[in-house]
């Protein structure tokens, strides 16, 4: 029998060798056990059946929906679906986050043979690859989506998406000219942030407009002033990043329309869009000051600008015009695949 003299330096220690062999054996056993005998726990996310999107819903601040799109038409996709099921949706933190804060909806696609409902959901929520998860507001407005991620990344996605859903609800409410919900949403979004965090000028601007529509002039001025005060310490690496600060100054009456127009043209990067935002702010201000006819004229220019039709300012302009009795079909916008602030 082979014996190794104790104390030799050029040999693998028998203890190490034994530990290694034992661990490798245990590895084999655990893998075979997991493959043949282990039963995966029951799916603990309470998935719901998909329903057609109800675009008329106005309770935008109630629980958003988490759509999980999976495709069983080919082997690779079904493997990936199982990966999601076994890893992500078995994670206790993810499960509790899903069950507590969203309405989980599982949409099973089947390639080209998918049913009409699944197909329409896929199109409305801009799903390009499966499996993927997508967060949407109760009225079906898209918030954010993700493809394969690790557990922690998925938690981060959910966290971010939930935060964004509030802001998106604010914008959606603006499109519905539901000033009350818009105010609530922007307020919530504002309160989600720590008190010394920079604030987003767009949200604040639209919040103040919504507040003025709700006849809360004082609060409207306050939020704008507060935003300017908070953002004084902001360092902008790019001059264009300062936009839309001039709009806030305009809404506060600190600069004239001509001045705003001039300032909007100073920012080269997104010139069209800045000019349009400025014009919308000008028009909304006119409307709130009671100069309806002049406001309508300006709003129509914004609404009918083909270059910037997908931007929120355009959408808001059309919403305001609809509120004033003009016809701009909303469904057309809903099929748009892009939306910008």
């Amino acid at each position: 029998m082979l014996t190794i003299e104790r104390g030799r330096t050029n040999v693998v220690p028998p203890v190490l060798l034994t530990v290694c062999v034992v661990l490798l054996f245990m590895r084999g056993v655990s893998i075979f056990y997991a493959t043949f005998y282990h039963k995966a726990p029951e799916r603990i996310v309470a998935w719901q059946q998909p329903k057609a999107l109800d675009k008329s819903r106005r309770d935008l601040l109630s629980r958003p929906s988490l759509y999980f799109f999976c495709d069983n038409s080919n082997q690779f996709n079904s493997i990936m679906t199982q990966l999601y099921d076994n890893m992500l949706f078995q994670n206790r933190e993810i499960v509790s986050m899903i069950n507590e804060s969203v309405v989980p909806i599982r949409v099973v696609l089947n390639g080209e043979k998918s049913d009409a409902l699944a197909k329409s959901l896929k199109n409305s929520l801009r799903v390009t690859n499966t499996p993927s998860a997508c967060l949407a507001l109760p009225n079906g407005a898209y918030v954010e989506s993700t493809a394969w991620q690790s557990d922690r990344m998925f938690v981060a996605f959910l966290h971010d998406a939930m935060e964004h859903s509030v802001r998106t609800a604010g914008f959606e409410a603006m499109r519905n000219t539901d000033w009350d919900t818009a105010c609530k949403a922007f307020q919530l979004d504002f309160e989600n942030k720590p008190s010394d965090e920079l604030v987003d000028y767009y949200g604040t601007m639209y919040w103040s407009i919504a507040l003025r529509h709700n006849h809360n002039e004082a609060r409207a001025r306050e939020v704008l002033q507060d935003a300017l005060k908070r953002n004084t310490k902001a360092i902008y690496f790019d001059k264009d990043d300062r936009w839309p600060e001039p709009c806030v100054h305009f809404l506060l009456g600190e600069i004239s329309w001509d001045e705003l127009k001039k300032r909007a043209s100073e920012y080269k990067k997104k010139h069209k869009y800045q000019a349009e935002t400025a014009q919308y702010v000008y028009a909304a201000n006119l409307l709130l000051e009671g100069k309806t006819e002049q406001a309508k004229k300006e709003l129509r220019e914004v609404a009918e600008n083909k270059d910037t039709r997908y931007y929120y300012s355009g959408k808001f302009a059309r919403a305001e015009l609809r509120g004033l009795g003009e016809t701009y079909p909303k469904e057309e916008e809903d099929n748009d695949t892009e939306s910008y602030d």
């Binding site: 104390g7 030799r8 330096t9 050029n10 040999v11």
Partner: peptide
């Protein structure tokens, strides 16, 4: 009297 790689030899 020991293997050349023995720790005592070293």
């Amino acid at each position: 009297g020991k293997a050349p790689d023995h720790i005592d030899v070293r």
